[in-house]
Design a protein around this nucleic acid. Structure first.
Lengths: 239, 239
DNA sequence: CGATGACTTGAGGGAATTCAACCGTCGTGG
DNA sequence: CCACGACGGTTGAATTCCCTCAAGTCATCG
């Protein structure tokens, strides 16, 4: 291995791609060793504190991001301040693949977040030279689209109860997918975030969760919930 | 021009790709003459009557489609029958790009619809040999995703009035984009369709439209509406 | 310990839904 | 030719689910 490129795999700044814990989950899973070195050369590691912005809707889209740690809130605002969270990005998720010249939504850190940041130009160049990589990007975009369509169904046609149950079940699955399989479902986002994701108010989310707790479906704990009756939750989430 | 390939541009069955009215709008806009011939060879022209299904959610996805005429309703159902329309496809729109092996939504004709139908295998093969084509697919998927996110904002955070106004303004823009610039906005879909697209009931859509008419924002006519005050409509649609 | 912020809980209100009736158009068949 | 049913759409009244407004609790932190 070339030491000047990858002097220390444990340090965050160098050799990080080959040591990246979420590589297999992410867009980078399609890269071989030499691709990876090039990717590492053109990307930069960035740390963000809670509530810090990655980018804001309307800004010129100079960078693309690959989340490596933490949870990112993606949202759109109406002029009067109403907010719709269109998704939560987890480690392995890729942001900014859209070929638009401006960000169509805002993104900011919910907890402590690490991302790989690349300039759009570098990224565009990179993929143009690697057609197989495009296929991967495409798959990811398609999955994203399917999730968005599922979310439309939820926002347009589900009750508050179904929304909250769906969210918990879906979130648990996503956490499991990145290897977090603890009994307690971690909810790093605020109730307001959940409400804005589900098209509800914070009070409705709160009430629904407490009702679920009264009905022994779950227990509300600090920083999350523990599902006591996953079957019932899944049934509510329906499909 | 080669006569055996394109004996009669007016006939629907042969030489149709080079004569296709919506080619520049569609995914096929990225194809050169020889690509187009191959595309024509592997695609089949299909006519559908109103309410006929193109495909159904859950089915194995054997084909991809390119709409050439008419309007297609794309929707998802909940087990109890609640329906969410996730989009209307117009001439030039491409359906089924997702690399999933099953359709994640259903699609059926609203009015008389024409589509180009390709088997997934042919299509996959076709794009694998044409990386530049992938970029086009990608752009389309991304635009689709942006629309979906915009729709999430609408479904989650807009009032009934804003929803209906947004829909009319957006639909008018889409019609204009495919060259339909008549004063009257054609609405080939039923009120129920509009309601299921906006996450409302048919009654609310009807009431909202009649109120708009009372307030002189538009006139309801057979098969559509005529916008009298586009400025006000756009303001309601906000953004 | 007081202040702050996240969350919960309660009371009341309202936007959209539900339930129900009605209207106009169109195609069909007596 | 028109009675008739079917269908899509409109309108009204009552209801409900969720929102708004308001107060209260709890944990954290200076």
């Amino acid at each position: 291995m070339i030491r000047t490129i990858s002097p220390n795999p444990n340090r965050a700044s160098f050799g990080r791609c080959s040591a990246c814990a979420v590589r297999s989950l992410s867009i980078c899973g399609a890269l071989d060793q030499s691709d990876l070195m090039e990717f590492e050369r053109i990307s930069r590691h960035v740390q963000l504190s809670p509530n810090e912005a990655l980018f804001t809707a309307g800004q010129i889209a100079r960078s693309v991001h690959n989340v490596t740690a933490g949870v990112v809130r993606l949202y759109k605002l109406l002029p009067d301040g109403r907010r719709q969270i269109i998704g939560f990005a987890l480690p392995g998720d890729f942001l900014g693949a859209a070929p638009s010249d401006r960000y169509s939504y805002s993104a900011d850190a919910i907890d402590s977040v690490s991302v790989c940041r690349l300039s759009r130009e570098s990224f565009t160049q990179f993929i143009e030279q690697r057609p197989h990589f495009l296929i991967r990007i495409n798959e990811i975009a398609s999955r994203e689209l399917m999730l968005a369509q599922e979310q439309m169904l939820l926002l347009g046609r589900r009750t508050a109860e179904e929304k909250v149950a769906s969210f918990l079940v879906g979130w648990r699955e996503r956490l499991a997918h990145i290897g977090d399989v603890r009994q307690t479902i971690a909810l790093p986002m605020s109730r307001q975030d959940i409400a804005d994701y589900l098209g509800l108010t914070i009070e409705t989310v709160s009430r629904t969760l407490t009702r679920f707790e009264r009905e022994k479906m779950l227990i509300i704990v600090a920083g999350g919930v523990r599902l006591l009756d996953p079957t019932r939750a899944a049934a509510m989430a329906a499909a």
